[in-house]
């Protein structure tokens, strides 16, 4: 399927999901002290929100699988970039 069939109900559901997740993040993180669990919750919420936005708003739910050939390597390279960007100076500061 190339172009998604208009599915306003699902889109509204996804939008509500993103907004609810974002709203929940505020009290949840405000009541927790900085910890790996808090970071995990925030990362999980970000991941879910991005998936919902990408799949529905950007039509990735309906796009041809061949488009993933363009998108996936970018994310893999992005991950590599995270480590490549650790310059010596920053590592030196941490000592």
């Amino acid at each position: 399927m190339d172009e998604g069939k208009p599915d306003n109900q699902f889109t509204l559901f996804a939008t509500a999901g993103i907004l609810i997740l974002g709203t929940l993040m505020l009290p949840l993180t405000a009541t927790m002290s900085p910890s790996p669990a808090r970071l995990g919750i925030i990362s999980g919420v970000i991941f879910l929100q991005v998936i919902l936005a990408g799949a529905n708003f950007m039509h990735l739910r309906h796009e041809r699988r061949s488009l993933w050939a363009v998108i996936l390597p970018t994310f893999i390279l992005g991950g590599v970039l995270l480590f490549a960007l650790m310059p010596d100076t920053i590592l030196e500061w941490a000592k």
Binding site: I18, G22, I46, V50, A53, G54, M58
Partner: peptide, 13 residues
């Protein structure tokens, strides 16, 4: 526009 929105979802937290 959706991409800009998606970046904000990561930037905000």
């Amino acid at each position: 526009w959706h991409f800009v929105d998606l970046v904000w979802l990561i930037l905000y937290p």
